[in-house]
Structure formats: structure tokens, C-alpha cells
Amino acid sequence: MELPIAARYEKTPGESYLHVLHALILRDMRTRFGASLWGYAVVVLWPCVHVFVLIAIYTFQKLAAPLGDNRALFFATGAVPVLVFQYVSREVMKSVIMNRPLTYYPQVKLFDVVLSRILVEIVTGFLALLVVVSVLVAIGTNPIPADPFTAMCGYVAAILLGIGIGTINVAIIGFFPGWMIGYALFSILLYVSSGVMFLPSYMPDKIYYWMKYNPALQCAEWVRSAYYPYAGIHVDGLYVVMFALTSATIGLLLIKHVVSKLSG
């Protein structure tokens, strides 16, 4: 027995949700990056430019790397995870403000907007990582770590941390829109204290003890420990993962309260 035409083309709830998510991702990319791939390329290359400007400054001043004999590798291993964390946490927060009108449609929930931006940022982050690795190879630097699995775990932890803090930021700006500026200033402080330009373990023990409560610093050290296993860098991976998961859980619980605030 042949089904009616309407029944044949009726979508299941799962298919409908994927369709909404796909539409949000496409809209996000087109509104932020323009219709061409060049706009998206600029966003991918922007954190890479940040890394290589830092390397160029230290190379021009002929400053030695705090660890190892390769400036480019030292700064890249610290800057990439910290920047990925900061970009994900910031862009997830901005997605709510940029896509607020979409939440008035019954098919689109605030969580869908957040999830679509998270997926875009994960892909963008991995593409930026590939660009950095490619440039390191081009300048004669070996980007393969002594322990690839540890390096990848540190990088994934940075993404997870960005998602967790990003969801917290979504909840905060639902009540305090000015937090976007506040978080930008806080990110500068976080970046400076995350060990991108120095080796935190060389700090006095009393200072280093408190610095390790910064999960972004632990992400940078996590990746660096894969490249410099002889440095004796100790990373509390469980602390970073639990911090990220706890932040994401709190943020998701608060999002339902933000929905009514944004709808008002």
C-alpha cells in the first residue's frame, strides 16, 4: 500500500531537529563570514596571525625560548590551546546576542543557537590548528610532539573548557549584557596569566600554586608537556575536565532562566 505524499515527506522529530541545526550553522557562517570562503578563511587565520606575530616579536628581539631551543614551537604550544579556549568561550556568548531574533520562532530554542555556534567554533579551531602546524612545517619546525595523544587531549580539553565557560557567559549576559565587555577585559588578564609567553613552573612555588587554579594555564601546560616531556610539567587533567563539565552543567541549568529573560 502506497503512503500519501504528505506522509512520505513527513520528517521525524530527529530529522527536523537536524534540519534546524543545519540551518542555524549555515546562517551563522553566512552572517559572520559573508557568502564567500574568504570571510571564513579570515576568521580561521586570525588566531594564527596572533601566534606568529608573537613568534616574530620574540625572534626579532632575539630572545631565547624559556624551554627548548625553538621559539616558534614553544609559543605555539602555549598560545594555540589558550586562544582556542578564549575564542570558543567568547563566540558562544556572542551567538545569543547575534541570533536573539531567531529564538522567537517556536522551532528554534536558545540551546540550538548555542550548540550550532559550538559546532562552528570546534571546526574553526581544528582548521586553525592545521594552519599553524602547516606553517611550522614550512619554516622548518617539527610540529609532531613526543606524545601526540597527550597533546591532543590538552587541545580537546581547551575546547571543552571553552564550551563550559561559554555556556556560563550565555547565562550571565542574559541578565547583564555589559558582561561582554567585562569578559573581554577578563580575557586579557587570563591570557597574560596562562603561561603563553613564559613557563609558569619556573615561578616561585607559592605563586605557581595559585596560578595552577587557572584551567587555561593547565591546558597550555598539558599541550607543552607532550612536547617537552623532560621538563617535568605536572598537569591536573582531572581538574581541568571537571572544571569544564561543571561550568557547562551550571550554564545549561541557567540557560532555561535566560530564555524567559530574552523572551521578555
Score class of each variant (00 low, 15 high):
residue 228 Y to Q: 01
residue 251 G to T: 04
residue 49 V to E: 01
residue 14 G to F: 12
residue 200 P to K: 07
residue 7 A to S: 13
residue 224 R to C: 02
residue 113 V to R: 07
residue 155 Y to Q: 05
residue 250 I to Y: 11
residue 52 F to M: 06
residue 152 M to I: 13
residue 73 L to F: 09
residue 62 K to S: 12
residue 166 G to P: 04
residue 46 W to D: 00
residue 55 I to A: 05
residue 217 L to I: 03
residue 203 M to N: 05
residue 199 L to G: 09
residue 5 I to D: 14
residue 134 S to M: 12
residue 66 P to A: 04
residue 49 V to L: 15
residue 136 L to E: 02
residue 129 L to A: 10
residue 122 I to P: 02
residue 135 V to N: 00
residue 26 L to V: 13
residue 245 L to S: 10
residue 174 G to Y: 04
residue 15 E to L: 14
residue 62 K to W: 02
residue 138 A to M: 08
residue 76 A to R: 05
residue 47 P to D: 01
residue 61 Q to L: 15
residue 33 F to C: 13
residue 75 F to S: 00
residue 174 G to C: 03
residue 161 L to C: 04
residue 253 L to I: 10
residue 66 P to N: 04
residue 119 L to Y: 07
residue 217 L to C: 08
residue 139 I to L: 09
residue 198 F to S: 01
residue 83 L to H: 01
residue 239 Y to T: 01
residue 222 W to E: 03
residue 106 P to V: 08
residue 232 G to D: 09
residue 76 A to H: 06
residue 178 G to N: 12
residue 172 I to L: 07
residue 239 Y to G: 00
residue 171 A to K: 09
residue 112 D to M: 03
residue 201 S to R: 08
residue 114 V to H: 03
residue 133 V to C: 11
residue 86 Q to V: 08
residue 113 V to Q: 02
residue 88 V to R: 07
residue 206 K to D: 14
residue 164 G to H: 04
residue 221 E to S: 10
residue 136 L to M: 12
residue 101 P to G: 07
residue 160 L to M: 14
residue 135 V to F: 13
residue 102 L to P: 03
residue 48 C to T: 15
residue 11 K to Y: 10
residue 246 T to H: 04
residue 168 I to M: 11
residue 143 P to S: 07
residue 13 P to Y: 07
residue 9 Y to G: 00
residue 33 F to M: 06
residue 26 L to C: 12
residue 100 R to P: 00
residue 186 F to E: 05
residue 205 D to Y: 12
residue 22 H to Y: 14
residue 213 Y to F: 15
residue 190 L to C: 08
residue 55 I to N: 02
residue 152 M to D: 01
residue 253 L to T: 04
residue 176 F to H: 07
residue 76 A to M: 11
residue 85 F to K: 00
residue 2 E to N: 12
residue 96 V to G: 07
residue 183 Y to S: 15
residue 117 R to Y: 02
residue 153 C to L: 15
residue 182 G to T: 05
residue 4 P to R: 12
residue 74 F to E: 06
residue 127 L to F: 09
residue 33 F to Q: 00
residue 95 S to Y: 04
residue 173 I to P: 02
residue 113 V to E: 00
residue 171 A to D: 04
residue 10 E to N: 11
residue 122 I to N: 00
residue 80 V to G: 01
residue 90 R to W: 14
residue 174 G to D: 05
residue 68 G to C: 08
residue 255 I to P: 00
residue 218 Q to F: 02
residue 54 L to S: 06
residue 260 S to C: 02
residue 119 L to A: 11
residue 73 L to P: 02
residue 244 A to N: 12
residue 158 A to H: 05
residue 46 W to Q: 11
residue 54 L to D: 00
residue 78 G to A: 01
residue 121 E to I: 04
residue 18 L to K: 12
residue 130 L to G: 15
residue 14 G to V: 10
residue 91 E to S: 11
residue 209 Y to H: 14
residue 253 L to K: 09
residue 78 G to H: 09
residue 228 Y to W: 14
residue 226 A to K: 07
residue 64 A to N: 06
residue 197 M to L: 14
